[in-house]
Design a binder for these strands. Structure first.
Lengths: 234, 234
DNA sequence: GCTCAACTCGTACGCTGTACGACAGATGAC
DNA sequence: GTCATCTGTCGTACAGCGTACGAGTTGAGC
């Protein structure tokens, strides 16, 4: 094709020569582009990110972005993965229960995505970046160390992944605005006789998301590796 | 605020008078619009649905759609809900295990969404239509009937919902093309030393999606309402 | 001084959703 | 009969989008 061979490798911008010119505009770089994209996504939402706006914020022309980035999809990929980095807690896993480790990682995962609500609705259609793979790896290692059978390992990893994805996406899409909330409540009480159980349990109004998340996570972990002492309920 | 008061109520198109004119074009109606939208989404994907294309397929002008529909978002809402209708199986639940009921409904749910892959990535940002609410209601009723405590009910419903959402979205986004698949495999073996557990368990290459889904669902249900006989593994 | 690569950016194209207003045909009032 | 009104269709236009293309600028190496 033309010049340009790039496709999201790391980049060093030319020194941005501090000699002759003004040289205070730090010039474009992949890092700045991604950071600004995240900023824009955070403040303006998913539709708020346009190449022109992004370039504006960077003090550059729209087409300049395309030197560093293949296309808009690529910007999404990079922004998403950049937001999902995970630092394991300091303690070695020997001092902690494996269950604690999983819960910590998964809750942190959810927290990351809720901090950047666009990430949840983006993740489904994006490729797996290194940070995401890292989390999956960690999850697998921990479960495996916890004695989950190899035959159950993938199902265990995926079910946790699915759970986090589902929970985060749902959460992100539910509390968008008070207007929506009021409308939902209205519609619900209108239809309360058609959906008596939902109405009775106040499913759509309950806003203890964190508690529900934790509880469901416990259900799932109980299923993956049953706790010996867990009593049968009901 | 001109004429037009509509907002997705049911509609009867005017008789489409079979008298004087040609009268073979069935004329526009909400039902035809939604059905055609689903068709278009199925064949062309989410970006393939544009108001102009939709109108073309219906033999109408683009702006005519707006008499029946508020805007494009509305089309998405209607298409999504129309695809998620659920018919309960014939047997009364008395003859079946509650667990069977839940599994049946949840697997059907997943099947519906996989049949229309766009639905998974759409659902997160859409309002809850009557068919979706119906499924939640059924889920709640069944769990409640199975003896799940009221305090656990919402967490149970949501965790199943989350699981289905996550699984479907993930599934839908993973097997898009063989190219992607090959690329992923390549990247993975490149990085096999960074992600040994994933590599070993062949997490990304395992394509028994149905089996993994069922297995994870069992984990979750075991957690929600433990089976008495389930032996501790490991 | 020249060449080449790295980088920036103005212009333009085809596409999008939809506001607006013109228009046609059927219906009901008088 | 005729006129107003309501229902429904659609052509035009506009602002905004992603990005192809090619020209322009800069600095390093020779």
């Amino acid at each position: 094709m033309a010049a340009k061979r790039n496709s999201a490798g790391s980049k060093q911008p030319r020194q941005a020569g501090a000699s002759s010119k003004a040289a205070q505009e730090p010039s474009l770089s992949l890092e700045r582009i991604v950071a600004t994209a995240v900023e824009l996504l955070d403040t303006q939402g998913i539709d708020g990110l346009t190449m022109r706006r992004l370039a504006d914020r960077l003090g550059a022309g729209a087409m300049s972005l395309y030197w560093h980035v293949d296309n808009k999809e690529n910007v999404f990929d990079l922004a998403l993965d950049s937001v999902l980095a995970y630092r394991e807690p300091r303690q070695t896993s020997k001092t902690r229960d494996w269950r604690q480790d999983v819960v910590h990682m998964v809750e942190d995962w959810r927290a990351c995505m809720l901090r950047h609500p666009w990430s949840a609705s983006l993740l489904p259609r994006r490729a797996l970046g290194p940070n995401i793979l890292g989390r999956l790896e960690l999850l697998g290692k921990t479960l495996s160390g916890a004695g989950v059978a190899d035959a159950d390992l993938n199902a265990g990893i995926w079910s946790l992944w699915n759970y986090v994805m589902g929970a985060t996406i749902t959460r992100g899409s539910f509390d968008l605005s008070d207007d929506d909330r009021a409308a939902a409540q209205q519609r619900l009480t209108d239809l309360s006789q058609r959906y008596p159980t939902i109405e009775r349990s106040r499913l759509l109004l309950d806003d203890d998301w964190d508690g529900a998340f934790r509880k469901g996570l416990d259900f799932l972990l109980d299923g993956i590796a049953p706790r010996p002492g867990k009593a049968r309920q009901s």
